[in-house]
Amino acid sequence: MTNPILENIRKSLGRTDQISSPQGAPLSLRPAIYQPRQPESVESEIETFLNEIKKLSGIGQKLSPDGIDFALETLITDQNIRTATVWQTPHLRQLGVTEILNSFNIKLISPNADKHEMAQCDLGITEADFLLPETGTLALYSSTEKPRAVSLLPRIHLAIVRPEILRADMHQVFAEAKNSNYLVFITGPSRTADIELTVTLGVHGPKNLYVWVII
């Protein structure tokens, strides 16, 4: 079985030998990369992270588990939230997020709901799987419990995260995540400057990004 494109590439590169096995390709021979960033203390990493979120027009803060109740109430009032959808993860369950939303009479939509229904949702609540302080980035996997649309379709995205998932550099994240079928980096709310270079938030994705670090 010959592939004409690969044949052309080999001809152009002046290959005379046939690669004996496709898996014998020179993956390991690539030039060395640079020294990854080293982590600082957890406190200082959280500060760096929240600082970056702020620069990106996101709203980040540190919270104790007891503070979630009040913080959610404030968010619901400020953003006029009526409907919400939440990732079904042990951490969010342990924090009692859905119970708190129920207590404020927020209509809950299943995170696996039809996309049209999900698109009407005001608030999507997720965790994150990794945090990158240097760039203010959240990294999220996807699964049935963690559907992709929750961080995308609602007009507000809230990520409730733990300091344990801080990683100093992309290398660590990729070392852990490279075999997953999906990962997304979220660095601030959706933005564009396509009309007269005016920065506009929330053109297709969420207009606001809230990040609460639970300590």
Partner: peptide, 20 residues
């Protein structure tokens, strides 16, 4: 420093519930 969204997509979805 990074664009807002960077996606890493390896094949199709594994389960209908995750979306994609």
């Amino acid at each position: 420093k990074l664009s807002t969204y960077t996606q890493f997509i390896t094949g199709p979805r594994h389960a209908e519930g995750e979306g994609g």
